[in-house]
């Protein structure tokens, strides 16, 4: 019953604190929307110059995906590159040899320019004989954008980040206002405090992650082939680890600012191992960290469900590991509370 009282109080406090409530729900939605717009924006249109190219050839080139400018001598084209009017130009010395000159400061612009030049001229040279490949995908599809791949990771990350902060800060507040001492002067057991916190924030987190996941999937059209319920299950178990870790970390901080200082140490590095960057390319002396971060398992499970459409069989190991993390952090929390009361 004491646990229920604590759970109820935490929910009451959250509901009173409209700003925190807003932060927990709308901040992830806002950031996800912005990322969606950034990653799924229009493709870059390269600005390409053609130098001394016969008009017969120019007519054959498909210029729909690029801004093409025609120059009569190379000097003019070079000038245009210097003044960043064009990203690069192509020069045909004779029918067989050609040279490409790029501005070159932005790798993504370089590759967009090269890709256009390649496709424009390969069709030109090989004509209709160009082989037609038909491409099939095991998972995903040709219209899968980067947002669809990053999305599950980001979804997990934002749930983790905000729950971590709010849980940690509210526990610090409990300590600095003296209410923790008062709680401990009652016959309340330490595990009851931890459980009450987990339940109170847990209930709120169910609502929070449902809204955020629903928004990402059905409003932003994040790729989603699996079942929604599994996404909720994963985000909830991730939120639980964030909650218990946040409370644990808060016992090493004396005030809210010191809690914020733990973000770059505890939260940010988890992104590196969550699959946002290819894990196989991470330097060996760092890559072993990955399996020790909760986000690693949550991101893997989320991607399994959202991109690959896997079911419970594939994600349950990840879920068990996440719950294992939570259980470990809860036990450590009980120990950390011994600092304030011995029994």
């Amino acid at each position: 019953m004491r646990v229920i009282a604590l759970t109820k109080r935490i929910l009451q406090q959250l509901i009173r604190d409209k700003r925190t409530l807003g932060l927990l729900i709308f901040a992830p939605i806002l950031v996800l929307t912005m990322l969606h717009l950034v990653f799924n924006g229009d493709d870059y249109v390269p600005k390409v110059g053609l130098v001394e190219i016969p008009e017969a050839i120019v007519d054959q080139i498909d210029t729909t995906d690029a801004e093409v400018t025609i120059y009569t001598n190379e000097n003019d084209a070079q000038q245009a590159v210097h003044s960043e009017e064009i990203d690069g130009y192509i020069l045909l010395d004779d029918a067989t040899t050609s040279a490409v000159f790029l501005e070159g400061s932005d790798p993504s612009v370089n590759s967009a320019t090269l890709r256009w030049i390649q496709s424009a001229f390969s069709s030109l040279q090989q004509g209709e004989s160009a082989a037609q490949f038909e491409i099939d995908y095991l998972y995903g599809s040709s219209d899968m954008g980067p947002f669809d791949y990053f999305g599950p990771v980001l979804l997990g990350f934002f749930v983790f980040f905000f729950v971590f902060i709010i849980a940690g800060v509210s526990f610090i507040r409990e300590r600095t206002t003296g209410t923790l001492e008062r709680l401990l002067s009652t016959p309340l057991r330490k595990w009851e405090i931890v459980t009450g916190y987990v339940l109170g924030f847990g209930i709120f987190t169910i609502i929070q992650s449902t809204i955020i996941a629903w928004y990402a999937i059905y409003v932003l059209n994040m790729m989603m082939v699996g079942a929604f319920i599994y996404v909720l299950l994963i985000t909830l178990s991730l939120a639980l680890t964030a909650l218990t870790l946040g409370i644990l970390i808060s016992s090493f901080a004396n005030n809210e600012l010191q809690m914020i200082q733990f973000i770059p140490i505890v939260v940010i590095p988890q992104i590196f191992f969550s699959g946002l960057f290819n894990l196989e390319t991470i330097s060996d002396w760092l890559s072993w960290v990955g399996p020790f971060t909760p986000l690693y398992y949550a991101a893997d499970a989320l991607r399994d469900v959202m991109v690959r459409g896997h079911g419970f069989g594939e994600i349950f190991v990840n879920l068990i590991i996440l719950f294992g993390f939570s259980l470990l952090f809860m036990l450590l929390n009980g120990l950390a509370l011994r600092k304030y009361r011995k029994i």
């Binding site: 009282a5 009451q12 209410t179 002067s185 009652t186």
Partner: peptide, 29 residues
């Protein structure tokens, strides 16, 4: 501890809540 009432130097109240809610909470404990 159940037979003791303790009041620390700090007021130790939940400011977001009403007096009644504070009392309800501690009474339940």
């Amino acid at each position: 501890m159940e037979r003791i009432g303790y009041m620390a130097q700090a007021d130790a109240l939940y400011e977001e809540l009403s007096a009644n809610e504070n009392l309800q909470f501690f009474a339940s404990l």
